[in-house]
């Protein structure tokens, strides 16, 4: 299934990536190379085969039900590109 630059633009918007016009055609070509390789999957006989999401079908161990609320604000905020008064700063979203 080959895709065009319009489909790439839509996927880019969904992924919140910016694709400039000058890179769109080349990117589209590369993605089509990848999708052409991936299309080998269509040869597989998968009738009645259940999808496998996780390699080991084991139980997930339960954790002790205990309140744990470490106060990590002062450790986490120094990594924020912009912060003020203990909050993350972003551009205005409500006019």
């Amino acid at each position: 299934m080959a895709i065009d630059t319009r489909v790439v633009a839509r996927a880019a918007h969904l992924a919140r990536l910016q694709v400039d016009d000058n890179e769109s055609a080349e990117l589209c070509g590369r993605l089509n190379d990848i999708l052409a390789m991936v299309d080998q999957l269509q040869q597989a006989d998968v009738d009645g085969v259940a999808p496998l999401a996780h390699p080991l079908e084991v139980h997930q161990p339960l954790r002790e039900d205990r309140v744990r609320e470490p106060d990590v604000r002062d450790k986490v905020l120094p990594n924020a590109p912009a912060s003020e008064d203990g909050c993350f700063l972003v551009p205005r979203v409500i006019d």
Binding site: M1, I3, V7, L17, L31, V49, P51
Partner: peptide, 27 residues
């Protein structure tokens, strides 16, 4: 590129052809 391939494969209308089929092959 990989984010775009993944986003496309999971987007509405393509899920069965790509993601579900890949997981079946995985089994």
């Amino acid at each position: 590129r990989r984010i775009l391939v993944g986003t496309y494969a999971l987007s509405a209308g393509y899920y069965d052809a790509y993601y579900k089929r890949a997981q079946q092959v995985r089994r």
